[in-house]
């Protein structure tokens, strides 16, 4: 089961790469919208396979006696991050029918998976600190939040790349602007829920709901940056390109919270290395 799950994940990774290329080609080659459609079909199929791989890994964990949900280390979190990114993107595609977004969002899912494939996929038992019912709630909320910010950053990049010389009042850009904001809101609410579940967990595991551990602090920094972004809407001149840049800066904070803290700073979250 574990081997099947790992093989599926390799296939999913390639599918995300192909889909990224398909979305890009469908967008650049205006005469071949079928490429974009093919990319959509492929992404849906890959997401189903991805879901199956995660469930299989979950089952395998119980089969070998490790007995935990597949959210316990960097490999598993990357796989789940890739899944949340693909899911969120497809929801936006369903709602907006704007396939070019896939050319910017799906590479993120691909890179998350590619990074995962470079790591050891072995299923290991849980450390005592991770044995908690809050693990699942904490990881799911955090990574759905990260995915919201990731898709928002992809939209921002799209806004900045395609926006040169265009009128900011162009309907397409208004839609993009609104989507950047909406995805930040999704990410912000879920990040808040992630920090809250993390605090509740820390309170029962470490005896304090907040200890200024680098991972906690960086999640707060990310939260503060996005809180500032949400308030910038109420200030004059903070629409369009500025917010897009802001959202990219926010996502850099997300990436640092996720990877940088574990690689460069020491702290309580070191098992996620």
């Amino acid at each position: 089961m574990e081997a099947l799950s790992n093989n599926l994940l390799v296939a999913v990774t390639f599918a995300y790469l192909l889909a990224s290329v398909g979305y890009l080609a469908g967008w650049v080659i205006k005469k071949a919208p079928v490429l974009g459609l093919a990319a959509s079909v492929l992404t849906w199929a890959a997401l189903i396979a991805h879901t199956a791989a995660i469930i299989l890994r979950w089952l395998a964990s119980y089969e070998i006696g490790a007995d935990h949900a597949p959210f316990s280390n960097l490999f598993e979190s990357l796989v789940f991050f890739g899944w949340t990114l693909a899911l969120l993107y497809l929801i936006i595609e369903l709602k907006t029918k704007l396939r070019p977004i896939g050319a910017f969002a799906m590479p993120l899912a691909f890179f998350a998976m590619l990074y995962a494939l470079k790591l050891d996929p072995a299923i290991k038992p849980l450390l005592p600190a991770l044995k908690s019912n809050w693990l699942i709630a904490h990881v799911i909320t955090c990574f759905l939040g990260y995915a919201g910010f990731g898709v928002s950053a992809a939209l921002s990049l799209m806004y900045l790349v395609t926006g040169k010389g265009q009128s900011p009042d162009d309907r397409r850009f208004l839609v993009l602007d609104e989507l950047i904001y909406q995805t930040v809101v999704v990410g912000f609410i879920l990040l808040t829920a992630g920090i809250v579940t993390g605090s509740i967990w820390a309170n029962s595991a470490w005896g304090t709901y907040w200890s200024w551990d680098p991972k906690e602090t960086w999640s707060l920094i990310t939260w503060l940056v996005y809180a500032a972004l949400l308030h910038s809407r109420y200030m004059r001149g903070w629409q369009g390109a500025r917010v897009a840049v802001f959202s990219l800066v926010g996502f850099v904070c997300v990436l640092f919270t996720y990877f940088g803290v574990n690689l460069l700073l020491s702290g309580l979250h070191s098992y996620a290395r």
């Binding site: 920094i221 503060l224 940056v225 809180a227 500032a228 308030h231 910038s232 200030m235």
Partner: peptide, 10 residues
């Protein structure tokens, strides 16, 4: 002020 304070704290 909120904007500046949030970013300063960050």
């Amino acid at each position: 002020l909120s904007f500046v304070l949030l970013l300063s704290l960050a």
